[in-house]
Write a protein that binds this DNA or RNA. Sequence first.
DNA 1: GCTTTAAAAAGTAACAT
DNA 2: ATGTTACTTTACAAAGC
Lengths: 205, 190
Amino acid sequence: RLRKWQKRARVKDSTERNLLFALGELDRMSSQLNLPKNLRETAALIYRKAVDENLIQGRSIEGVSAASLYASCRKLDVPRTLEEIAEVSRISKKEIGRTFRFISRKLNLDLNIVSPRDFIPRFCSKLNLSEKVKEKAKKIIHKAEEKNILSGKGPTGIAASSIYIASIECGEKKTQKEIAEIASVTKVTIRNRYKELVKKLGINL
Amino acid sequence: MTYKRVIFMDPEIKIENVVASASFDQELDLEEIYERFEDAEYNQEKFPGVVYRLTEPKTAALIFSSGKLVCTGAKNVDDVEVAVDKVINKLREAGIEIKEKPKTVVQNIVASADLDHPLNLNSIAIGFGLESVEYEPEQFPGLVYRLDEPNVVLLLFGSGKIVCTGGKRPEDCEKGVKKVKQELKDLGLL
DNA sequence: GCTTTAAAAAGTAACAT
DNA sequence: ATGTTACTTTACAAAGC
């Protein structure tokens, strides 16, 4: 009996140590990314739920932490790219992606599909672009969605291209290189997407 | 070719890859095979099997010391048999006794199909239910749809092209494609 | 879990010309 | 600026780490 009790105490101990470590990870990554408090709390809730459902089995605490953080951004519709999360984690974006897909399926997080629109406020702020550019970029995305020319395309590339077009239309032009760095996509992708948008939406630049 | 085929092959699928396994009921000396085959690969550290590529049919055979074999790359189920026959001949030419041809078991079939109509993956994800579908365009351009009956996984693309994998028989892929096609029609998304 | 093999889909990326 | 190659996803067997 005594052994059983000791074993339980040990298990409880390591469980608590692991939880503390994970919460510390979430806090560390969140501060590095300047994420708001409510988002950190959502991430902690998702992580705890993952622990309760035994989803950590066979996965690293760091990986599940990073995936929980990515998921919390998605839950609040202010997605970060896997690239951004991976930059403040020791885990690769490939692994964070798989872990995220796994926990979001198991926990029924019912997340909305990422829309390029979700990235507009953040990217534009980082680029010091006006409210006018933001609105114009969102209109471009809306038209593109109506025409169904976005299926399968990466949302960050589309957000970046829409901003590129809108910045020119508003006389606040940013270079493809500047936008590419903030959106973590290559300038080649921005070029390809913007050419397609201009052509299919009949935009005159 | 015939009538039956035309009628039942409706959602024309193209088999792209067949993976099959077989077992010679005898142990094999991989070092010996590696030495006697001009063009085989074998790195124990890298992988425990000998890799032997055939040009006709274009396939790759993985040979293990247990006497088991895996054949990949065949474009149809019959080519698996042709490939395995060639591997057996090659082994016999190399002076390795092979008693009889083992039964081959198809483990997986990958097929492609085309709906000839662009798809709105956003609408499909919502229509099929976010819980039964996976669509993460940042990570992969295809929508992943898992079917229980038949037990296959389908990848749907914005172009209307489809990939079906996980089937054990060509009919599994046929049925899988037919099923999604019908579901898309029912939802008015095709 | 990983390693290796094959093949398709479409998008993105990396490196070369 | 374009072109080529390569990597992402799905399924599956094999033996061994």
